[in-house]
Nucleic acid binder design. Structure first.
Length: 426
DNA sequence: TCTGGGGTCCTAGGACCC
DNA sequence: TCTGGGGTCCTAGGACCC
């Protein structure tokens, strides 16, 4: 294709110009979940594929293939809308273990280039490839090699290259899929100035509205705005957004693997109104969270319960756990108590969520966890032994293989999940 | 159209302490 | 009697991201 050749020649020319300053890549896997499904189902290639929840179960689109996007389908769109826009689409649930596996292979390619990798999500990462005295290779060549190596895995990525994270991120969005957009050092201001403020990561619907109200439409407007005005408007985030708009970001790009919370939530196909059903749902979620905590070797100090009512409004409550804990039986009893703060008979709930936070920063929790395991309970077979055995069965045979007592009553009522978190899938 | 799930971070108000 | 000020921690809610 002539266009691709022209672009390629242009990149060759740019690669002849020495790179001055920091070189940051944002690597974004194109329509990642849908692409993996097309890789695994050759008959689906070239066709509209949608990974998402069922339309009649309050599902939304998780990822749409580019063929489906032509119909106007996009992430977070209600599945019912997507079905109307693209009736011929092939639908599938997510296969998160598989996505995590593919993501891991891509991340391995990035780490093969440099340890300065910051994974943002399952399908995105920043990479610092600033030329050094040891490795003087031009960043454009590194970016092209990464793209080629990723394609050999059977998926594609778009890459933005610039001197800051925000420039790289904005650049990666300019040409998708399979794009490589380079913003040369010195040309950042010209590149950013005309873009709408909403394009900047960190400016959502609320901040956009506030900025528009005082006449700030573009990143150029924002960069030139008065600091006190913006910080007065957006608080601490204002400081960060100004720095981003002015290319004054200097934080190093390093792996950031500290987990701060583990949660599970479910929107029900039909609102729940009975205490039994709600408690059964809570017990299921408590068990899932407990198992994921144990798998990660985490002990939490705070337990939270969240509900969403029929009118879509939400409330939450949290309580300290006494001792750092990963035990769903402890969670369950406390959550049933907490439910009284958020729900009275007669109220319909469309969603319930459970989350645990407050992990020790050091590896102290892991040591506590190991210590705890050797603690036998009163009846000889400890609850911990039971949980560990259950964990093993569920790892091997799947989520529905084993359920405790009252969880059984929930069977068939669960909407299933379209979580992006790989750990959440069997 | 009728609105998922898993996260992170910030804010405002109140409790509590000195 | 009517009254401080600052620091820190906790809670609930919300913005934002993918």
């Amino acid at each position: 294709m002539a266009n691709e050749d022209a672009h390629s020649n242009e990149l060759d020319a740019l690669a002849a110009i020495p790179w001055v300053g920091r070189a940051v890549l944002l690597v974004d896997l194109d329509a990642f979940f849908a692409s993996v499904e097309q890789l695994d189902h050759p008959a689906w290639r070239g066709k509209p594929v949608i990974v998402g929840g069922h339309a009649d179960r309050r599902g939304v689109v998780s990822t749409a293939s580019y063929e489906a996007r032509k119909f106007g389908v996009h992430s977070a769109m209600p599945s019912a809308t997507a079905e109307r826009l693209c009736p011929e689409a092939i639908w599938t649930e997510g296969h998160y273990d598989r996505y995590r596996e593919m993501s891991g292979k891509v991340m391995a390619i990035l780490y093969d280039e440099t340890p300065h990798v910051q994974q943002v999500s399952i399908d995105e990462a920043f990479v610092d490839i600033t030329p050094t005295s040891v490795n003087r290779e031009h960043p454009i060549l590194v970016a092209r090699r990464i793209q080629e190596r990723v394609e050999q895995l059977g998926v594609t990525c778009s890459i933005g290259l610039g001197t800051t994270k925000s420039v790289a991120k904005l650049a990666s969005d300019m040409d998708k899929p399979r794009g490589l957009t380079v913003v040369m050092p010195g040309s950042e201001a010209n590149f950013m100035a005309p873009l709408p403020v909403r394009a900047l990561s960190g400016i959502g619907a609320a901040a956009e509205k506030k900025l528009h109200a005082i006449g700030i439409e573009t990143l150029g407007d924002l960069a030139n705005a008065d600091d006190d005005v913006i910080i007065g408007l957006l608080g601490k985030a204002g400081r960060v957004m100004l720095d981003r708009a002015r290319c004054e970001e200097h934080a190093p790009i390093e792996p950031d693997d500290e987990v701060k919370s583990v949660s599970n939530e479910t929107s029900f196909a039909v609102d729940l109104t009975s205490r039994d059903d709600i408690e059964a749902a809570i017990a299921t979620m408590a068990a899932k969270v407990g198992r994921r905590l144990r798998r990660k070797g985490l002990l939490g100090r705070t337990l939270a319960l969240k509900v969403r009512y029929a009118d879509f409004s939400a409330r939450s409550t949290q309580r300290p756990l006494g001792e750092p804990c990963d035990d769903e039986f402890v969670f369950k009893d406390m959550l049933f108590d907490m439910l009284d703060d958020l729900w009275q008979p007669g109220l319909a709930l469309r969603l319930v969520g459970v989350s645990v936070t407050g992990f020790d920063q050091s590896n102290e929790s892991e040591q506590l966890s190991l210590f705890d395991e050797s603690d036998p309970s009163d009846d000889g077979v400890s609850r911990r032994d039971l949980q560990k055995a259950t964990d093993r069965v569920k790892e091997r045979f799947g989520e529905s293989a084993l359920r405790y007592g009252r969880e059984l009553r929930m069977h068939g009522t669960d909407t299933g999940t379209t979580s992006k978190n790989p750990a959440d899938y069997k």
